[in-house]
Nucleic acid binder design. Structure first.
Lengths: 338, 338
DNA sequence: TAATTTTGCAAAATCGTTTTAGAAGTGTAA
DNA sequence: TTACACTTCTAAAACGATTTTGCAAAATTA
């Protein structure tokens, strides 16, 4: 079945296609189309089941009203919620979002930027994987609207919005200290990304502020490429090799989940044998007895701010915007695990 | 910064834009373009950082190489995995996927179909919300490629692929009987959708096969619109009012998760006080002590089959395809909760 | 040498819109 | 009668690609 175009409507209504376009875009008044003609066109269009071809519109106007969102892994609840919130937010501005995952792989990230460019997205929201500096810098140089989220690249002149990682970890550490824990291990990932470094910095800073000497043996950097089981084993051996540990701080939710499995495997009790706190909240943390204390990122605020910044750039492509650097506060959710 | 078009490349290389197109599409040989010209064009295109405008290509060729995927809720891990698998599968065929959620709301579903149509997707993968019959039937009538997943609408002449729900529940029930449980409650949702009815049918069928009389008091239909807390309370009162219950069968993973919360609230022990089994697997079920038995859908097989069916229709738009009705077997994952 | 075929590319049509410029027709005033 | 201003709509260009057709020059054949 052929689709109906504006031309078909025009010939059916006995007018020019420009007239149809004016009417359908509500410019009938402005273009002084008579009410008679307007009604007829509207009628015909409705009966024919006409809907506009967005591709043609975008091609002609040069605006696709679409944003590209590149996250690390859409399967992770944090990014999934972020994506959904961003989508809802963008809808307010009349924009659609297409999203995709890098899996923290720079070459996949490069491909995705390419793909989005080809599809003529109006702006980019990116959680950059390591080594994506060059590709993102290129976007910036071409004056494409770009906002980085969740992390940033110091070398790139792009606006970013993220949680105040160091501050958030410090807050969590303060809570642990207040509960009397002193021997606190830190489990992070071996990825060379800004936000992970900031979290580790938060940990180190909190220790030194409390006057506790840094013990590198109880900082574990799990290789990102490790399989689930290898990682669980790694965390388990950290616990076995350091029986003095009173608490474990996980730098991200999926590490926390792996940690729960390790602790479970060692038949240790939370919080009696080991206290647990994790960055990024998760359904499991709310549910897993006795409830896992976590640091909840202000996902909604991040999404809102990021979209707002991007929109500003999109709607105003002439002027160059100063790089905005936004850091938002996290929220500590205290549960039974500490 | 202006984008470079094929015309720009043409004038830079001193050739016609058609020539550029031929070269870039690898048709140089076929169109008898000399190697000299081919090399020059390639060189110029590379240096200028040219990339094609997908919108223009789609408009001209009439193929967007994009599929529309409409799920119930992309936030749910089942749909998220399904979406991701479908995306990977579609990539094999050179197609992109744009996905969106209905939240089980027919009018939102209608809007989404509209949006996807305007964006000229080549085919539709849909988990239909109740009352979407008409809109989907219309797609079918317009001979658009459509495949329904996870559920189907008896009134609509569209292919579908889903898990064998009744059979899967029967399998779960058989396991419960084998473990000696007789008093088994069933918690489902009050939505009027095919797959939920099939699951309930599976439950009822299993009982009658076992010679157990149906007790409607221990079948709970949680209203879909209930808030988290209301639902938890509802399930808790089911347990309180029916102390004879030995096991609870949850018809979907998010109900199962709510159920865990209810059980937790009542301080009942799994499986000593109450055994638990849930449809659809989830991270939490693997982790939550003592592990929750669940029925895992063959997500990968569903995705593969659905995409394959859709591709067949897309690549072959002339012929009308017979409605394919595919039902796949689920896998019972036995854990400590039963 | 003339006719024919092949080569190598250019021109133009096309996809479905938007948008600018302007063409008829009518009315009004000088 | 002419000039001018409205009113109402149309024609055509443009967006950036693909694809069909066209056509001159070179090469081949008769």
């Amino acid at each position: 079945m052929k689709k109906v175009s504006i031309k078909d409507i025009a010939s059916m209504a006995g007018v020019a296609s420009s007239t149809v376009s004016f009417v359908l875009n509500g410019k009938a008044r402005k273009m002084r189309i008579s009410e008679t003609v307007e009604k007829r066109v509207l009628e015909v269009a409705r009966n024919a089941g006409y809907y506009p071809n967005q591709l043609a519109i975008s091609l002609r106007t040069g605006k696709s009203k679409t944003l590209g969102l590149i996250v690390e892994n859409i399967g992770n609840i944090f990014f999934a919620t972020l994506a959904k919130t961003i989508e809802e937010e963008a809808e307010q501005y009349g924009y659609r979002v297409v999203y995709c995952s890098t899996e923290n792989n720079a070459s996949k990230g490069k491909e995705l930027i390419n793909m989005l460019s080809q599809r003529q997205v109006d702006g980019y929201l990116i959680t950059p994987a390591p080594h994506m500096e060059e590709d993102i810098q290129q976007l910036v140089q071409l004056q494409r609207p770009v906002v980085l989220i969740d992390r940033y690249l110091p070398a790139v002149e792009a606006s970013h919005v993220l949680v105040n990682n160091a501050e958030a970890v410090a807050q969590g550490m303060a809570h642990l200290f207040a509960q009397g824990y002193k021997e606190i291990g830190f489990v992070t990932v071996d990825l060379d990304v800004m936000q992970m470094e900031q979290r580790l910095d938060g940990y180190i800073g909190a220790l030194s502020k409390e006057g506790i000497r840094l013990n590198k043996d109880i900082i574990l950097k799990v290789p990102y490429t490790h399989q689930r089981d290898e990682a669980v084993e790694l965390i388990a051996s950290l616990l076995k090799n350091n029986p003095q540990l009173e608490a474990l701080f996980f730098a991200t939710n999926y590490l926390g989940i792996l940690g729960l499995e390790s602790i479970n495997r060692l038949k240790m009790a939370i919080p009696e044998d080991i206290a647990v706190i994790s960055f990024d909240d998760h359904d499991i943390f709310r549910l897993y007895p006795p409830g896992i204390t976590s640091i909840q990122q202000p996902v909604e605020a991040i999404a809102k701010k990021a979209v707002a910044l991007l929109m500003e750039q999109c709607e105003n492509t002439e002027s160059i915007f100063p790089k905005a650097e936004v850091e938002l506060a996290a929220k500590l959710i205290v549960r039974g695990s500490t």
